[in-house]
Write a protein that binds this DNA or RNA. Structure first.
Lengths: 214, 214
DNA sequence: GCTCTGCCAACTGTCGACAGTTAACATCGT
DNA sequence: ACGATGTTAACTGTCGACAGTTGGCAGAGC
């Protein structure tokens, strides 16, 4: 039998609180009240504090001494710094993916791209879910668990800002093309081209976010 | 007056416990007893638990449900994954440093290199302190606070393994040469050459650690 | 002698309460 | 009316105690 992944109240609180932050139910700038939230979750302040600190270590909350935790707000400089980190990590992961990918990885990547195009053609907004799935599939192909973990954390922080990407068809179309180009380079086993495409893709996304903010 | 950096007991406990782990006073594989350590630090279990969780988020401790925290031990695969991450981050930082460095940055880097050579010539073992100082100076020149923070965390984990690097003069000499080559490329404003030198430098360090382990 | 089962000690996970600090409000002085 | 100051309520930081789980040990059964 697999040991239960988290039965601890603190672990559950991490999951619930993460969702509350990522879905925007606790919007950026909001301060978190420990006693109130503890009652809402039906737990004591101890486990909740541990959950809060954990989320803070992931960058989803910021702590101020004697003033508690709040959901971070980002300015242009923050976005730039965040994308410098994301670019460093994802370009490296993309290079590794181009070197290490299996046939199954390529199949998977193509499938995600096709599903994205279907959804886009069907008039849906480009589902963020599929964008994440694509990047996740790329990370799987890279077979570097630590880099994958760090990328996951950075992407989480980006999700906090994703309101900036809603409803921009040109940007979404460009992203679909980027993804296709990425898959082609990875499938061809060309790390430097793949990395280059990724760098440009992220630069576009970053620029898009900066204009949407400022 | 600058507000005290951490007056909270949890914050102090983080610093003390981090030092205990990094200096090897609590060696890898050792389990940490909460009540015992709390008494030793003269604090209650609450703040200590927060400190433990914080160190765990930095990778300096690993948590097992109902079995507490212990200092992690690394095998070859861990070292490889760790250096893949480190390479991704430091190569990116090096590229940025080559683009953004000021004259003062170059002066600083040269000074650290010279001090390292002096120490080495004087028959000292290559002080790890100076190696950290060099990489830190490089990060300062890169002006990317998030990447710098992540590198700091990875380097911390590497310190846990640094016993593997003691007393290897050929390796130390090669590292000194690497550092000089790095400074030259950064000073010349050549990002791709600088990144390349860094990649090879880290590959050598990683290989050295792997042979020392297995 | 070996294995399985049931108990036991030690430790972690959790809780409720107290103390110290912060920030906002009301009050006083000018 | 405006600013400075004292006061107070709310919240965080900390503590000690209780409960549940884990792993080891002793003893019974084969």
């Amino acid at each position: 039998m697999t040991p239960p992944l988290h039965l601890s109240l603190a672990g559950q609180a991490v999951d619930v609180l993460r969702e509350l932050v990522l879905t925007g139910e606790i919007p950026p700038g909001t301060r978190v009240n420990e006693v109130e939230l503890a009652q809402r979750l039906g737990i004591s302040r101890g486990p909740l504090r541990e959950a809060i600190r954990h989320l803070a270590s992931e960058g989803l909350l910021v702590l101020a001494p004697h003033r508690g935790a709040s959901v971070p707000t980002a300015d242009a400089a923050d976005v730039q710094a965040l994308f410098e980190l994301r670019t460093a990590l994802e370009c490296a992961a993309t290079e590794l993916a181009a070197s290490r990918r299996s046939d199954a990885d390529v199949v998977r990547l193509r499938a995600v791209c096709e599903e994205s195009r279907r959804a886009y053609s069907a008039g849906e907004r480009f589902p963020y879910r599929l964008d994440l799935a694509f990047h996740q599939a790329l990370l799987d192909a890279a077979r570097s668990p630590r880099i994958a973990e760090q990328v996951r954390l950075v992407q989480q922080r980006v999700v906090l800002l994703r309101s900036a990407l809603r409803d921009d068809p040109p940007h979404q179309h460009a992203s679909l093309d980027d993804h296709d180009a990425l898959v082609a380079a990875v499938a061809a086993g060309d790390p430097s081209r793949a990395s280059d495409v990724m760098r440009k893709h992220l630069a576009r996304v970053c620029a898009q976010m900066l204009t949407s903010l400022g």
